[in-house]
Design a protein around this nucleic acid. Sequence first.
DNA 1: GGGTTCGATACCGCGTTGTCATCAGCGTGC
DNA 2: GCACGCTGATGACAACGCGGTATCGAACCC
Lengths: 298, 298
Amino acid sequence: MDLRRLVYFVAVAEELHFGRAASRLAIAQPPLSRQIAQLESDLGVMLIDRSRSQIRLTQAGSVLLERARDVLERLDRTHREIKRIGEGFSGHLRVAFVGSATYGVLPNVIKAFRSAYPDVELALSAMNNAEQKRAVIQREIDIAVARPSLEDEELKSEPLLQEPLILALSDTSPLLERQVTRLAALKAETFVLYPRKPRPSFADHILSICLEEGFIPKSQVLAQDYQTAISLVSVGVGIALVPKSVSQAERPGVAYRAYEGHNPGTALSLNYRRDNRMPHLFNFLKIAQDVMRRQRKQ
Amino acid sequence: MDLRRLVYFVAVAEELHFGRAASRLAIAQPPLSRQIAQLESDLGVMLIDRSRSQIRLTQAGSVLLERARDVLERLDRTHREIKRIGEGFSGHLRVAFVGSATYGVLPNVIKAFRSAYPDVELALSAMNNAEQKRAVIQREIDIAVARPSLEDEELKSEPLLQEPLILALSDTSPLLERQVTRLAALKAETFVLYPRKPRPSFADHILSICLEEGFIPKSQVLAQDYQTAISLVSVGVGIALVPKSVSQAERPGVAYRAYEGHNPGTALSLNYRRDNRMPHLFNFLKIAQDVMRRQRKQ
DNA sequence: GGGTTCGATACCGCGTTGTCATCAGCGTGC
DNA sequence: GCACGCTGATGACAACGCGGTATCGAACCC
């Protein structure tokens, strides 16, 4: 059952006249007659009653007309549907991010993407770097928002944001009374570090900064993720070095302070498989660039 | 969107391997690659991610796979559906019959047709000859069961049954006491005739029989149809000459008697348009012939 | 009964599809 | 590390199918 023949048949069935149907289809009448005859012999069913000058549909023809219209309309809808997906205006995109990206620039990027592509279903999930790397390589997610970035032959990485580190303290800490805080002066404090595993991780990045300042924190508490770490800080377990952007979100029990000393900062990046060509991904990258450019101007 | 390409795409999408899909489709691999590429360029959408040795569907491809399977299955079902209609095993058939055919052979024909073609919807309706003729010519019905037959250039007629006439009387009639009833002896009775219009009709058939016997009924009551006429007989309005088969159905207040005298009987026929080629019609005619043959043997 | 209308048939040219041969890219294994 | 194998893409060519024009045959109409 060729699709062209189905279209031809619908035209004939609607016009009930081969000549008019042919001109509607922009072909000559003879090939139309032949295609209908071919369709009938393919199906083994008479579709059109030609016994009079005014042709009529048989019962089988009437049913086929209904069904054919339905099928043709479904195909048309399908075409539009997949075209939208192919252009990235519909479908879904799976994004994972580190906990410390929950505040700051990522929400703006997400918001901008949602408003530009409202029909794309965004599946967001929090993961640490190691989980992100596994997931993006396994194609379980499309984009990994990692700190500082994921290194792998299969992956590509684009910088999203470079930001300084900042000190996170309990809001009851006596350190808050000082005007300036030198990092080296904190060697006796308990440092809350994350994530605990796998190593090396952001924790080691902080430790290397301390080493640069000439000390290794005497007391270290390792948390599994940023959320846990900041909770520990809020209840007075210790202090932490965190990306500056997280200070945008007020959190009960936590105060933030700039510090003096080595501050290489920390980077946030967008990571994805090199071979991932889905348009949603490129659209997301473009939106992210736009947001960053606008943010930088302000 | 060619249907062949859709079938090819489903094969590739299911196998995720051009070579295997090609052999499943019993074609070589190159044309398959080309057809899929053609489909993608027709739709303007990438359907298959060929970036690795193991190919994968894109999001658009996954959606198309679902939709294509659905459409192909619908077309398959449609094919079976209209084939059954084309063979007369499904669909509908519209039959009209004169009221006096309600008893006797017609119910047996209907029963036999129903059991042979249970999926054919039979639309039955009672009409007098004139209504039947109009309806069958206008194609509002397919078969007219008329008495004796419908004469028209457009129509064909096949005899169904030839049966004698019989006298219908009120069961309180004094005529019942006689052993034999000569028709000519009834000239003073009131004759219930039908249908009233249009004329000539079965009423005139009865009157011509009376004339043959040498009289014209003094008193005539005209009813519109057989059902009304027999009701009038049952309440003692008069007597009627009716087809013998209706005596098979017992009716309160009515008695039947054979009579002596001219009895050309009455014929029942199947009538249909010459140009009606629907298989249901031929099946019905065949069933009717079978039933009549069996009935005659008994 | 001649003309008109309409679908069917005959025949021809071209586009599309299939075949075979071969290429190019990627992975794998010795 | 290089060669081989696997897989899909590309090229050349033959065959089939589709559409075009011309024409026929039947039904309808005045």
